Deep mutational scan, measured.
Amino acid sequence: NITNLCPFDEVFNATRFASVYAWNRKRISNCVADYSVLYNFAPFFAFKCYGVSPTKLNDLCFTNVYADSFVIRGNEVSQIAPGQTGNIADYNYKLPDDFTGCVIAWNSNKLDSKVGGNYNYLYRLFRKSNLKPFERDISTEIYQAGNKPCNGVAGFNCYFPLRSYGFRPTYGVGHQPYRVVVLSFELLHAPATVCGPKKST
């Protein structure tokens, strides 16, 4: 009989979020998941679920829940969905086509923008091939755009693969920082350890 609540607040209220190319993952297990707390949290810009209804989450049990978190621009949030393409979905964070879970995003301009620009948040701009679902690539190898080998030196046709967002408070909404948490639900042939409040007695 599990009684402790799942530590969703640790994920959602973290002081610093990860850059999207180096997205953070927390495994959540052996706890009671009260999703209504999240669902009623006012400032969400997006709360979209795939393969599961957000209002039914509290009735369900899962083997594991993974909480992935990172920061992207407002106009990139739409790429955090199954079957998407674009710089983020291709080179930074890719969801599987059969994704079961929820994508939760909110504007973090007050936290993550600075006058003069916040350059701490990076994304991958160049990559030889697209990421596989949930693949994480933190390499900083110089990207070779031409035929000539770069030998690890940036220059003509040789690019550092990461780019900084440089968030400023005055940017338009599409270019403002958004914090994103992706909850993915794993249902294995194993005992369920993460259940909603109704199922955990």
Score class of each variant (00 low, 15 high):
Asn1Lys: 12
Asn1Val: 10
Asn1Glu: 12
Asn4Glu: 14
Leu5Cys: 10
Leu5Phe: 12
Leu5Pro: 15
Leu5Tyr: 12
Leu5Asp: 12
Pro7Ser: 13
Pro7Asp: 14
Pro7Tyr: 08
Pro7Met: 08
Pro7Lys: 13
Phe8Asp: 02
Asp9Phe: 13
Glu10Trp: 06
Glu10Gly: 08
Glu10Val: 09
Val11Asp: 03
Val11Ala: 04
Phe12Asp: 01
Ala14Pro: 06
Ala14His: 08
Arg16Asn: 15
Ala18Glu: 10
Ser19Tyr: 02
Ser19Arg: 03
Val20Trp: 03
Tyr21Lys: 02
Ala22Lys: 10
Ala22Trp: 07
Trp23Leu: 01
Trp23Met: 02
Trp23Tyr: 09
Asn24Glu: 15
Arg25Met: 02
Arg27Ile: 15
Arg27His: 12
Ile28Asp: 01
Ser29Leu: 07
Asn30Val: 05
Asn30Thr: 08
Asn30Tyr: 08
Cys31Pro: 06
Cys31Ala: 07
Cys31Phe: 07
Cys31Val: 06
Ala33Asn: 08
Asp34Asn: 11
Tyr35Ser: 09
Tyr35Asn: 08
Ser36Ala: 11
Val37Thr: 14
Asn40Cys: 06
Asn40Lys: 15
Phe41Thr: 11
Pro43His: 10
Pro43Met: 06
Pro43Gln: 09
Phe44His: 14
Phe45Gln: 15
Phe47Ile: 12
Phe47Val: 12
Lys48His: 09
Cys49His: 03
Cys49Asp: 00
Cys49Ala: 02
Gly51Met: 05
Gly51Leu: 05
Gly51Glu: 05
Gly51Phe: 05
Val52Lys: 05
Val52Leu: 11
Ser53Leu: 11
Ser53Cys: 07
Ser53Met: 10
Pro54Met: 15
Thr55Trp: 11
Lys56Asp: 13
Lys56Ala: 13
Lys56Gln: 14
Lys56Phe: 07
Leu57Lys: 06
Leu57Asp: 06
Leu57Met: 10
Leu57Ser: 06
Asn58Ala: 12
Asn58Gln: 12
Asp59Asn: 13
Asp59Ser: 14
Leu60Val: 12
Leu60Met: 15
Phe62Ser: 08
Thr63Val: 11
Thr63Ile: 09
Asn64Pro: 10
Tyr66Pro: 01
Ala67Phe: 07
Ala67Cys: 09
Ala67Ser: 04
Asp68Met: 04
Asp68Gly: 03
Phe70Asn: 00
Ile72Met: 06
Arg73Gly: 13
Gly74Tyr: 04
Gly74Gln: 06
Val77Asp: 00
Val77Tyr: 05
Val77Ala: 05
Ser78Leu: 09
Ser78Ala: 14
Ser78Cys: 07
Ile80Arg: 02
Ala81Thr: 06
Ala81Gly: 08
Ala81Pro: 01
Pro82Val: 05
Gly83Gln: 09
Gln84His: 09
Gln84Arg: 12
Thr85Ser: 15
Thr85Pro: 07
Thr85Lys: 12
Gly86Trp: 03
Gly86Ser: 03
Asn87Thr: 15
Ala89Pro: 07
Ala89Met: 04
Ala89Arg: 04
Asp90Ser: 12
Tyr91Gln: 05
Asn92Ser: 04
Asn92Tyr: 02
Asn92Leu: 01
Lys94Asn: 07
Leu95Asp: 00
Leu95Glu: 00
Leu95Ile: 12
Pro96Met: 04
Pro96Phe: 02
Asp98Gln: 10
Asp98Met: 08
Asp98Thr: 12
Asp98Pro: 10
Phe99Glu: 00
Thr100Val: 14
Gly101Ile: 02
Gly101Pro: 00
Cys102Ala: 03
Ile104Trp: 13
Ala105Arg: 06
Ala105Thr: 11
Trp106Pro: 00
Asn107Ile: 02
Ser108Val: 05
Ser108Trp: 02
Ser108Lys: 02
Asn109Lys: 09
Asn109Trp: 06
Asn109Pro: 02
Asn109Gln: 06
Leu111Ala: 13
Ser113Gln: 02
Lys114Cys: 09
Lys114Gln: 13
Val115Met: 11
Gly116Arg: 08
Gly117Pro: 02
Gly117Leu: 03
Gly117Ile: 03
Gly117Thr: 03
Gly117Ser: 03
Asn118Phe: 04
Asn118Cys: 05
Tyr119Met: 09
Tyr119Gln: 10
Asn120Trp: 08
Tyr121Ile: 09
Leu122Trp: 11
Tyr123Val: 15
Tyr123Phe: 15
Tyr123Lys: 15
Leu125Ser: 14
Phe126Ile: 04
Phe126Val: 06
Lys128Ser: 14
Lys128Arg: 13
Ser129Met: 10
Ser129Phe: 09
Ser129Lys: 14
Asn130Leu: 12
Asn130Asp: 10
Asn130Tyr: 10
Lys132Glu: 12
Lys132Thr: 11
Pro133Ser: 07
Pro133Tyr: 06
Phe134Trp: 10
Phe134Met: 09
Glu135Asn: 07
Arg136Lys: 12
Asp137Cys: 04
Asp137Met: 03
Ile138Asn: 11
Ile138Glu: 14
Ser139Arg: 10
Ser139Gln: 10
Thr140Met: 13
Glu141Ile: 09
Glu141Trp: 07
Tyr143Thr: 03
Tyr143Met: 06
Gln144Ser: 10
Ala145Asn: 06
Ala145Ile: 05
Gly146Glu: 02
Asn147Cys: 07
Lys148Gly: 09
Pro149Asn: 12
Pro149Arg: 10
Cys150Gln: 00
Asn151Glu: 13
Asn151Thr: 10
Asn151Tyr: 10
Gly152Thr: 08
Gly152Asn: 13
Val153Asp: 12
Ala154Arg: 11
Ala154Ser: 15
Ala154Lys: 12
Gly155Ser: 06
Gly155Leu: 04
Gly155Ala: 08
Phe156Trp: 06
Phe156Glu: 04
Asn157Ser: 02
Asn157Pro: 01
Asn157Ala: 02
Cys158Trp: 03
Cys158Val: 02
Cys158Phe: 02
Tyr159Phe: 03
Tyr159Arg: 02
Tyr159His: 03
Phe160Gly: 10
Pro161Gln: 04
Leu162Cys: 04
Arg163Gly: 15
Arg163Cys: 15
Arg163Pro: 07
Ser164Arg: 07
Ser164Glu: 07
Tyr165Asn: 01
Tyr165Pro: 04
Tyr165Gln: 03
Tyr165Thr: 01
Gly166Tyr: 04
Gly166Glu: 01
Gly166Cys: 04
Arg168Thr: 04
Pro169Ile: 04
Pro169His: 06
Thr170Ile: 01
Thr170Arg: 04
Tyr171Pro: 00
Tyr171Val: 02
Tyr171Gln: 00
Gly172Phe: 01
Val173Tyr: 13
Gly174Leu: 11
Gly174Asn: 08
His175Met: 00
Gln176Leu: 04
Gln176Arg: 04
Pro177Ala: 07
Pro177Ile: 02
Tyr178Thr: 09
Tyr178Ser: 05
Arg179Phe: 00
Val180Ile: 10
Val180Tyr: 01
Val181Arg: 02
Val182Trp: 01
Val182Met: 01
Phe185Val: 07
Phe185Thr: 06
Phe185Cys: 05
Glu186Pro: 09
Glu186Gln: 12
Leu187Thr: 15
Leu187Gln: 14
Leu188Ala: 15
His189Ser: 14
His189Phe: 10
Ala190Asn: 13
Pro191Cys: 09
Pro191Glu: 14
Ala192Glu: 12
Ala192Ile: 12
Thr193Glu: 12
Thr193Cys: 09
Val194Leu: 11
Gly196Trp: 10
Pro197Leu: 15
Lys198Ser: 14
Lys199Asn: 11
Lys199Tyr: 14
Lys199Ile: 13
Ser200Gln: 14
Ser200Trp: 14
Ser200Ala: 14
Ser200Asp: 14
Thr201Arg: 14
Thr201His: 14
Thr201Leu: 14
